[in-house]
Amino acid sequence: MNVFRLTGDLSHLVAIILLLLKIWKTRSCAGISGKSQVMFALVFTTRYLDLFTNFISPYNSVMKVIYLGCSYATVYMIYMKFKASYDGNHDTFRAEFLIIPVGGLAFLVNHEFTPLEILWTFSIYLESVAILPQLFMITKTGEAETITTHYLFALGLYRALYLINWIWRYYFEGFFDLIAIVAGCVQTILYCDFFYLYITKVLHGKKLSLPA
């Protein structure tokens, strides 16, 4: 474990908790893409199947349980509890256009052709594009609540920190995983446009609004 991975995990945790609190406190999921949240729940489910069979450390197990619990709680709140506030008209990104190609790619490009490994690879590829419906929704609505932009910033930052973690691990441990690195680069690049808007607008106290 190195400081970049630890801060990356904490940034990820902050993002997930921030979103959960936003929906819970405002009792509304306006501006939140349910499709992205369903894909994140799918990412954690397919990635943490070894939760009970492969114990790494208390930290690792606790974080996996928290990620799984929070992501399912978020999906539950969006599609059940606060369904009335779900903005389905703007959450129109075709998620199947992501899940199917990602599923196919996981079969073709992986480290080992075993169910667990293919599911892990699927979760890595899916996570890299899972935020697209959310970013797409923001372009449709032309704006985002400030709390939502903080959520997105923390979420984007987490994988950027993981990229530094992989550089660190390559340099000091000679460890690298090309699938995770390439997907991590794609994932972080997708946030660049948002990062620019976040830093130039939200951090200057302005609301994030896109030229509609």
């Binding site: 995990d9 790494i56 450390s57 690792n60 973690n165 441990e173 995770a180």
Partner: peptide, 10 residues
């Protein structure tokens, strides 16, 4: 070995 190592990441 490599896989074992990697699986320690979230």
């Amino acid at each position: 070995e490599q896989d074992k190592e990697r699986k320690d990441e979230l």
